[in-house]
Amino acid sequence: VRQEELAAARAALHDLMTGKRVATVQKDGRRVEFTATSVSDLKKYIAELEVQTGM
């Protein structure tokens, strides 16, 4: 499950970095929206997932 969450989070980051205004991911069973202003929060979430998956 964590691998899927990590892939979704990375895709969301890619979307935001390429101009999409809002990206949505499932985080702990709930839907979370990230915007360009919350990229740093999304990067932290990705880092947490990488630690949890041993990457």
Rank of each mutant, 00 (worst) to 15 (best):
V1E: 13
V1D: 15
V1Y: 10
V1P: 13
V1C: 12
V1G: 14
V1A: 13
R2M: 12
R2H: 13
R2K: 15
R2Q: 12
Q3F: 14
Q3H: 13
Q3N: 12
Q3Y: 14
Q3W: 14
Q3T: 13
E4L: 12
E4K: 11
E4C: 10
E4M: 12
E4W: 13
E4Y: 09
E5N: 07
E5I: 10
E5W: 06
E5V: 08
E5H: 09
E5D: 09
L6N: 01
L6A: 03
L6I: 06
L6Q: 01
L6M: 05
L6R: 01
L6C: 03
L6P: 00
L6V: 04
L6H: 02
L6G: 01
A7Q: 12
A7D: 13
A7C: 10
A7K: 12
A7E: 11
A7M: 11
A7Y: 07
A8R: 10
A8P: 01
A8V: 08
A8Y: 06
A8I: 11
A8K: 09
A8S: 12
A8Q: 13
A9N: 01
A9Y: 05
A9S: 03
A9C: 06
A9V: 04
A9L: 10
A9E: 01
R10E: 04
R10H: 07
R10C: 08
R10G: 02
R10L: 10
A11E: 10
A11N: 09
A11H: 08
A11L: 09
A11W: 02
A11R: 14
A11F: 02
A12H: 01
A12S: 03
L13Y: 06
L13G: 00
L13I: 02
L13M: 05
H14C: 12
H14D: 08
H14N: 13
H14M: 09
D15Q: 09
D15A: 08
D15W: 03
L16I: 09
L16W: 02
L16S: 01
L16D: 01
M17C: 11
M17D: 05
M17W: 02
M17K: 06
M17V: 09
M17E: 12
T18Y: 07
T18M: 13
T18P: 01
T18C: 12
T18S: 13
T18N: 14
T18V: 08
T18D: 09
T18W: 07
T18E: 11
T18A: 12
G19W: 00
G19R: 02
G19M: 00
G19C: 04
G19L: 00
G19T: 03
G19F: 00
K20I: 10
K20P: 02
K20M: 11
K20E: 08
K20D: 06
K20G: 10
K20T: 10
K20V: 11
K20Q: 11
K20F: 04
R21K: 14
R21L: 15
R21P: 15
R21E: 14
R21H: 13
R21M: 14
V22I: 10
V22F: 07
V22D: 04
V22H: 08
V22W: 05
A23Y: 00
A23P: 03
A23G: 06
A23K: 02
A23W: 00
T24I: 14
T24D: 06
T24C: 13
T24V: 15
T24Q: 08
T24S: 12
V25S: 03
V25H: 02
V25G: 03
V25Y: 00
V25N: 02
Q26E: 13
Q26V: 15
Q26A: 08
Q26P: 07
Q26M: 15
Q26N: 13
Q26S: 11
K27P: 03
K27S: 06
K27T: 07
K27A: 07
K27I: 15
K27L: 11
K27E: 04
K27V: 15
K27F: 06
K27Y: 04
D28T: 03
D28Q: 06
D28S: 06
D28M: 01
G29W: 00
G29L: 02
G29Y: 01
G29Q: 04
G29I: 02
G29T: 03
G29F: 02
G29H: 04
G29E: 04
G29R: 03
R30C: 10
R30S: 10
R30N: 11
R30Q: 13
R30Y: 12
R30V: 15
R30G: 08
R30T: 11
R30W: 06
R30L: 12
R31K: 15
R31S: 14
R31A: 15
R31F: 15
R31L: 15
V32S: 04
V32I: 13
V32D: 04
V32R: 05
V32F: 09
V32A: 05
E33W: 04
E33V: 08
E33S: 06
E33L: 05
E33I: 09
F34Y: 13
F34E: 03
F34V: 06
F34N: 04
F34K: 03
F34D: 03
T35P: 07
T35M: 06
T35W: 08
T35I: 05
T35E: 08
T35Q: 07
T35L: 07
T35N: 11
A36M: 13
A36N: 10
A36W: 14
A36G: 09
A36P: 14
A36R: 09
A36C: 13
A36D: 12
T37G: 11
T37C: 11
T37R: 05
T37N: 15
T37L: 11
T37I: 09
T37Y: 05
S38T: 14
S38H: 10
S38C: 10
S38L: 08
S38M: 15
S38R: 05
S38G: 10
S38Q: 14
S38D: 15
V39W: 04
V39I: 15
V39H: 03
V39K: 04
V39L: 15
V39S: 04
V39C: 07
S40V: 10
S40W: 03
S40I: 10
S40T: 10
S40H: 13
D41S: 07
D41F: 05
D41L: 09
D41P: 01
D41Q: 09
D41H: 06
D41V: 06
L42V: 02
L42R: 00
L42E: 01
L42N: 00
L42H: 00
L42A: 00
K43R: 12
K43N: 06
K43Y: 09
K43H: 08
K43Q: 12
K43P: 01
K44Q: 11
K44G: 06
K44C: 09
K44H: 08
K44M: 10
K44A: 15
Y45I: 09
Y45T: 03
Y45F: 09
Y45G: 01
Y45C: 05
Y45N: 02
I46H: 00
I46Q: 00
A47W: 10
A47N: 09
A47Q: 12
A47R: 10
A47C: 10
E48Y: 12
E48L: 10
E48I: 09
E48F: 12
E48V: 08
E48Q: 11
E48A: 08
E48T: 07
L49F: 02
L49V: 03
L49K: 01
L49I: 05
L49Q: 01
L49R: 01
L49E: 00
L49D: 00
E50L: 07
E50Q: 06
E50Y: 05
E50P: 00
V51S: 14
V51P: 04
V51M: 15
V51Q: 15
V51Y: 14
V51H: 14
Q52D: 12
Q52C: 09
Q52Y: 08
Q52E: 15
Q52I: 14
T53D: 11
T53C: 10
T53G: 11
T53A: 14
T53Q: 12
T53P: 09
T53N: 14
T53K: 06
G54K: 08
G54N: 11
G54L: 05
G54F: 02
G54W: 02
G54H: 10
G54M: 05
M55P: 11
M55D: 13
M55S: 14
M55C: 12
